[in-house]
Design a protein around this nucleic acid. Structure first.
Lengths: 112, 112
DNA sequence: TCTATATTTCGAAACATGTCGAACTATAGA
DNA sequence: TCTATAGTTCGACATGTTTCGAAATATAGA
């Protein structure tokens, strides 16, 4: 497909990942902390383990893992093992890149 | 799935629609007019017919129609027949809703 | 070293999506 | 009314996605 800028391919993969309700909820949990509708900037508060993210979602651990891997491979979330757990978070640049896409500033590159 | 707010379902459908490279390109064409990276506010300039949108994309008319219908059903684009052609455009509120989602203002409701 | 906890990988089944061509509908103009 | 243009609907096929359970891996602590 020669009509696409590299960027659009990346973006399409991000939207595809967010296009599943389970994955969108997981992503959403990583963007909000404590109070609903609030966003705090303390990095620690925005990190959740795989297990925490899956709480209340009625899906098998293997399915949860699969979805988080998809979000990670799309460049939407970061994952890092910390002891027995794997912690997940979103880089703020990802949010501004996506917000910017719809707001019309597409100069901002995705950083990986 | 009881964990989802109504809104998240709508949003997931929007992202799912944008998750296909062909559809993202179609959507993207509707957000940009004339100069790349520019966004003009003249409504007329932001309207394209189904045929115009498909130009250069190597997909069958039936596939094009299918994709535009998906974008429309997800609430991303508007469609209206004007003579022989069907014109497509994006309501600015959709762009601000999506931009706002990633920027952290989720109070703004989707208007349909 | 053994065990419990946390997460991932694998394989399989059910279901959804992207694509096409053929046939259809809608409109404008000769 | 006939024809050409613009899009849509339908049915079929190939491919991709979601989900699970079972088995595997990683880590911390007894």
């Amino acid at each position: 497909m020669s009509n696409y800028r590299n960027d659009d391919q990346l973006l399409a993969e991000m939207f595809k990942a967010l296009g599943n309700p389970h994955r969108l909820l997981l992503f959403h949990r990583l963007t909000t902390c404590c109070q609903p509708g609030t966003r705090c900037d303390l990095d620690a508060a925005m990190r959740f383990s795989v297990g925490q993210l899956g709480e209340g979602l009625e899906i098998a651990p293997s399915t949860l893992s699969h979805h988080l891997k998809a979000l990670h491979q799309a460049g939407l979330i970061e994952m890092e093992r910390q002891g027995k757990q794997v912690m997940c978070w979103i880089e703020p640049a990802v949010l501004s890149r996506l917000s910017g896409y719809f707001a019309g500033n597409e100069e901002i590159p995705i950083e990986r």
